[in-house]
Design a binder for these strands. Structure first.
Lengths: 202, 202
DNA sequence: CCACGATGTGTACGATAGGTTCACTAAAAG
DNA sequence: CTTTTAGTGAACCTATCGTACACATCGTGG
């Protein structure tokens, strides 16, 4: 690295690449501005100018490293689509180091307002919106009970997974997400059992 | 503070009091061993000897400051009891600074294994166990559908609240927890509506 | 009653990280 | 070509972590 100026876009890309790689290798524990600066060849001052906090940089680096393609399917069957989406979600969380990194990003976001804002805006809220939208479509097709709070459903499916991700000790797998869907679609109350529990009809 | 030795129990209490107060005042952001040492009058070395990490100390200080009396009611009506318990939970999270502190503790636990272990053992798992136990009682009384995963239900009620606590932007209030209970007890699927939706009976 | 070991205290120290300042220099704009 | 903009390297200050060492005092066994 010479002493003079380099094009901003080149620097920006180098820093994001380094940040993503560092995150995948060592997690948020070893993620420091100094380390990113050394690895990327950029100057600390430049990094401080381009990102408001180390957390915000980490989040953007994460997106650079992990192409985040969790499309939301719509086959017309809301229950099946939720299962499919949750299976893919579980796959992402457990198959790679993405689960640990996401947990650490959410963790640091609790004391880094810039990271929290970036996480909500770039990751969490768009995802929520997609899920709510799919649920509303299902409702308009008469597949959901009137009065169901779609936002609450999101918390009861993906939020439940995040709960186990952040406070480990219970598995996050297909059996779990299937149980989540079962509980919501079939209800947990014995007096409100499935209609097909009455094989002879009414 | 003289230079010599003080009784360990006295020191321990002073440190915990200082840790709890500091936590309530400034949150985990300003929570450092140095600050606790200064405030409590104890020596840093002593604190390092008595607690494995700053997070572990913070957790214990939190319990010292906030008497944690969230009893789990059993009136025989599982749905009503869950509502009652969740209302009290919401009250605790939003009425005081406990919500922010818990969020920050969980956040730091993501990069502090001692804190995570302590949190799970002293807070999270006992709570889970109480809830699961209450749900199992309800099941044995025929109030829950057979095959319901009680652990998953816990994630869908309290876990959903933690989700909104950690990723804010949506309210954590009685309307929300009531929606959580409604979704689980009445189901969200239109084809499995409430039996009392047929006023004329069968 | 007293000597001694266990243990907390004050102080200092090295290491790491955050964040800033400043002179220097090359890219970009005119 | 000249001027403006902006990244670079190096130094610096502060905060925090975690540890080392000598010292003082409490509790206990003789």
């Amino acid at each position: 690295m010479g002493r003079g100026r380099r094009p901003t876009e080149e620097v920006r890309r180098d820093v994001l690449d380094a940040a993503g790689a560092l995150l995948l290798e060592r997690g948020m524990g070893g993620f420091t501005i100094d380390a990113v600066a050394t690895r990327s060849g950029a100057s600390k001052v430049t990094i401080y100018k381009l990102w408001p906090s180390a957390g915000a940089l980490a989040l953007e680096g994460y997106f650079t490293a992990v192409e985040d393609t969790l499309a939301f399917p719509d086959t017309g069957d809301i229950e099946a689509d939720l299962r499919t989406q949750l299976h893919a979600f579980v796959e992402l969380l457990t198959g790679t180091s993405a689960g640990r990194i996401v947990a650490e990003l959410i963790g640091r976001a609790q004391t880094d307002e810039h990271l929290l804002a970036a996480y909500l805006q770039r990751y969490s809220e768009p995802r929520r919106a997609l899920a709510v939208q799919r649920l509303e479509t299902a409702r308009s097709h008469g597949q959901l009970r009137d009065g169901v709070d779609a936002e609450a459903v999101v918390d009861q499916l993906w939020g439940a997974c995040y709960h186990r991700l952040l406070l480990p000790g219970h598995p996050v797998n297909r059996a779990f997400t299937d149980a989540l869907v079962d509980n919501l679609f079939h209800g947990i109350h014995s007096a409100h059992g499935r209609l097909d529990a009455f094989p002879g009809g009414f």
